[in-house]
Design a protein around this nucleic acid. Sequence first.
DNA 1: TATAATATGTATAACGTATATATACAATTT
DNA 2: AAATTGTATATATACGTTATACATATTATA
Lengths: 124, 124
Amino acid sequence: MDIIISNSSGKPIYEQIVLQIKEGIITGRLKPGEALPSMRNLAMQLRISIITTKRAYEELEREGFIESFTGKGSFVKAQDPELLREEGFRQTERLLIQAVEKAKQSGIGQEELTELVKLLYEGE
Amino acid sequence: MDIIISNSSGKPIYEQIVLQIKEGIITGRLKPGEALPSMRNLAMQLRISIITTKRAYEELEREGFIESFTGKGSFVKAQDPELLREEGFRQTERLLIQAVEKAKQSGIGQEELTELVKLLYEGE
DNA sequence: TATAATATGTATAACGTATATATACAATTT
DNA sequence: AAATTGTATATATACGTTATACATATTATA
C-alpha cells in the first residue's frame, strides 16, 4: 500500500491518507483482513508524526473501514464493496454536475472539457 | 446582489463571498461600475464581522475584479474579457479536479468518466 | 518454558497558522 | 455637523501537526 503525500494539495495530511486508503478498499486493492502499515512505519516512511497517522486511522475506524488492536496492528474490515461503489458514483456525479455547469457558464466546449478530464485523470 | 453563506460548506466565509461575487461578474449579472453592497451592510445582512467582508473585498480587489474608495463604496471594475475567461477556466478546473479525484476513489475509470461528462453536458 | 526485547496502538500537552472578530480611526457624501 | 463609507490594530478561536511517554501484544532467546 503506497501512500503519497502532496504538499500542494491543500488537503490536510491525515485526510490524504484517509482518502487513499479508502480508495484502496473501495477498488478492492486492499482486501478485508489485510494488514495496513503500522502507524509508526507509515509515519516514518512519510516523514510525519505518528500522531498524524493515528488521526487518519482513527477517522477510518470511525467510518467503519478498518479496525486497530493495540500491540497487533490495523486491519481492513469486512466491507460491502458494491454499496461503497454506488455511493462513490453518486458523489462523483454530484461533483461532475457542478463542474459541467461551470464549464458551460464559462464558454468551455464539450471537447475541451473531456480533454481536460483526461489530463486531470492521468496527471497524478 | 444576494449572497448566501453556508456553514456546512467547509469553505471560509470570506471565500464564499469572493466566489459568489466573481460569479456575478463573470456571468454579467454584475456590470462594470455597478455598486456592491457596502462592507457594513453586507456584514450586517450576513450577521458577520465587517472585517470578514473587508477581507473578501480585498481579495477581489487584489484580483482586479472590483475597486474600493473610502467614504464612497466598492464598485465593479471594467473587466478584461481575457481575465474573465481565464477565471472561468480556473473555476471549472477546480471543480473538475474534485470530481476526478472522487471518481478515482470510487473506482470509476477514465472512459466511464468521460462518457458521464458527455451525458451531463448534452442532457439539458 | 520464562523472560527480555521488539513491535504494535494510545494518551497528554503544546505549538503554529488561518479564520473570524471588536473597536477605533479616516475620508466622503448628505 | 451628521451619517455613511472604507481602513487599521490587536485579539480570540479552531484546526492541523508535533514530541514524548505509556500500555499491550508478539517475537527472540536463554
